[in-house]
Computed example of a mutant assay.
Amino acid sequence: MSDALKVNSSQEETEEQVFARNCLTPENLSAAMLVSGNLLGTTPVTDVVYELKRQTAAINSGDMTRAEDMLVAQAHSLDTLFAQLASRALRAKHMEGLESYMRLALKAQNQARATLQTLGELKTPKQVAFVKQANIGNQVLVNNGIQEKPARTRKSKKAQNELLEVEHGERLDTRATGAAGGTDPAMATMGPKHRTTQHRG
């Protein structure tokens, strides 16, 4: 197969725009990295691109087999890395080496855990619950006419009126002349002639 990739272009695009779009395609970027790192030997870059596009199309159609296999393989690799780093930490002769290797080992272990967690969420997606929220407010009655006083006010006013009654239905006469007190009999009520003729307003 030829190493030249067939790229669809339109009349509105320039040659530079077509080249940029071709280079920024995810499959092309990944293929370029794999080939330049000699990870695939002498495999042509076009074959790598077409294989990556086939896998991408499978995922877009809902087939997550490749993604699940990849996560499982990565989890195994990270677990192996954790074991090797932890082993080196235990064989370290100095505290600095032990701490460095154990720190890297625990990072690998945490990444393995996160990879398996992602795999679990991929296999069994979380159920998203859509809860309808109803805003129920108190009913407010607006009366533009005469406002009726609250019951508590009427009751308290009635209680105050009852305190001014000697007997049921009989109100106290606050204008009546009171008798002299028993403690000081001399302080008797003044007669009409001793009262002042001027009333204070």
Rank of each mutant, 00 (worst) to 15 (best):
F130D: 09
R88Y: 12
T25M: 06
Q55F: 08
L78S: 00
E12C: 07
G201F: 06
S87N: 13
Q160I: 07
V49I: 07
K53T: 01
A89S: 13
H94V: 11
T183E: 13
Y50N: 07
T118Y: 05
Q133S: 11
K93T: 15
E165T: 06
G62A: 02
T153K: 11
A4F: 12
L24P: 01
Q147P: 04
Q139R: 13
I136L: 11
N161K: 15
V166I: 15
L164H: 07
M64E: 04
T56Y: 04
A20R: 14
N60V: 03
T183F: 12
R175E: 14
Q111G: 02
Q127W: 05
T177Y: 10
T25F: 05
A188I: 10
D173W: 03
L163P: 02
K149V: 13
R54D: 10
T153N: 08
A67Y: 07
S87F: 11
M102N: 06
N60L: 13
N8F: 12
T56P: 00
V166T: 15
A75N: 01
L29E: 11
P150F: 02
N143T: 07
G191E: 10
L122Q: 04
A108Q: 03
S9E: 12
F130M: 06
E167Q: 07
D47C: 03
A114S: 14
P185H: 02
T177L: 07
A4K: 12
A83G: 03
N22K: 13
G201A: 05
M102I: 06
A31E: 00
Q84T: 13
Q11V: 13
P26S: 00
T42R: 11
P192W: 02
D63Q: 02
L163C: 06
R91H: 10
E96N: 11
V128L: 11
C23D: 10
V48F: 01
H94C: 08
A108W: 03
K158M: 08
P44N: 04
A176E: 11
A31I: 01
K6T: 15
A86C: 04
L34S: 01
G62P: 01
L39T: 05
N135G: 05
V72R: 14
V45R: 08
D69P: 00
K93M: 07
T65L: 03
L34G: 00
T25P: 00
E99Q: 13
E96D: 15
Q74R: 08
S2P: 15
A176C: 05
P125S: 01
K107A: 14
G145L: 05
Q55E: 08
E16N: 08
E99C: 04
V35F: 03
A105M: 02
E165C: 14
N144M: 08
L172C: 12
L40D: 01
T43Y: 05
N38I: 04
S77E: 10
V128S: 05
E148H: 09
A57D: 10
L172R: 15
H194M: 12
